[in-house]
C-alpha cells in the first residue's frame, strides 16, 4: 500500500469504471429506442458487480486471467476487470419486438450519473488531502 494506491482509491476507481460502463449500456439502450427487435441490456445486479470488482476482480467472462500471463512483478498489474451487459427480462415489449422503457433508462441515467459524481468528488477529496499534506510540509504557510 502506498500513498495513492489505497483501498479507498482503488474502490472509487472501480466504481467510476463500472459507472462509465453502465452509462455506455444505458446510452446504447436509448440510442436504439426505435430499433425494431432491440432488447434492453444492463449490467446484471450492479451492487454485485462492484463487490466482485473490489474483491480482487478475478478473471470474469473470458478476459485473460493473471495466471495465464507470466509476470515479472504481479503487483505492478491491476487485476483484469471486464463487466459485461446482459439482456434484461420482464420488461413490457412493444409489437415491434423492442422492449426499451424510456422511464427506466432515464431514471438509471440520472442515478448512474450521480453515482459517478459521488465517486469523482470523493476521489477529488482524496487528492486534495494528499496535496495539502505535501504543501503543509513545505516552509511556506
Amino acid at each position: 500500500m502506498s500513498l495513492i494506491d489505497t483501498p479507498l482509491m482503488r474502490g472509487l476507481e472501480r466504481v467510476m469504471d463500472l459507472s462509465a460502463f453502465r452509462h455506455q449500456v444505458i446510452a446504447s439502450n436509448l440510442a436504439n429506442i426505435d430499433t425494431p427487435g432491440y432488447r434492453t441490456r444492463d449490467v446484471r445486479a450492479f451492487a454485485g458487480e462492484i463487490e466482485q470488482a473490489m474483491n480482487g476482480g478475478q478473471a470474469m467472462f473470458g478476459e485473460p486471467s493473471l495466471s495465464q500471463i507470466s509476470l515479472s512483478q504481479p503487483s505492478h498489474v491491476q487485476p483484469w476487470f471486464a463487466p459485461v451487459s446482459h439482456p434484461i427480462r420482464g420488461l413490457l415489449e412493444r409489437p415491434d419486438g423492442n422492449n426499451v422503457s424510456v422511464e427506466r433508462e432515464s431514471l438509471l441515467l440520472a442515478e448512474n450519473q450521480l453515482r459517478f459524481t459521488v465517486a469523482a468528488q470523493f476521489m477529488k477529496g482524496e487528492f486534495h488531502k494528499l496535496t495539502s499534506a505535501i504543501t503543509l510540509g513545505g516552509s511556506s504557510s
Binding site: 440510442a31 432491440y38 451487459s85
Partner: peptide, 24 residues
Amino acid sequence: FQAQRVPRFSLALAGLQRENSSAV
C-alpha cells in the same frame, strides 16, 4: 433502423467479440 455493434478494442485484442453496446 438497425442496431450496430460497437467493437471494443480490449475485447478484440483478447480475441473476444461481445455485444455490450450498440449504436444505431
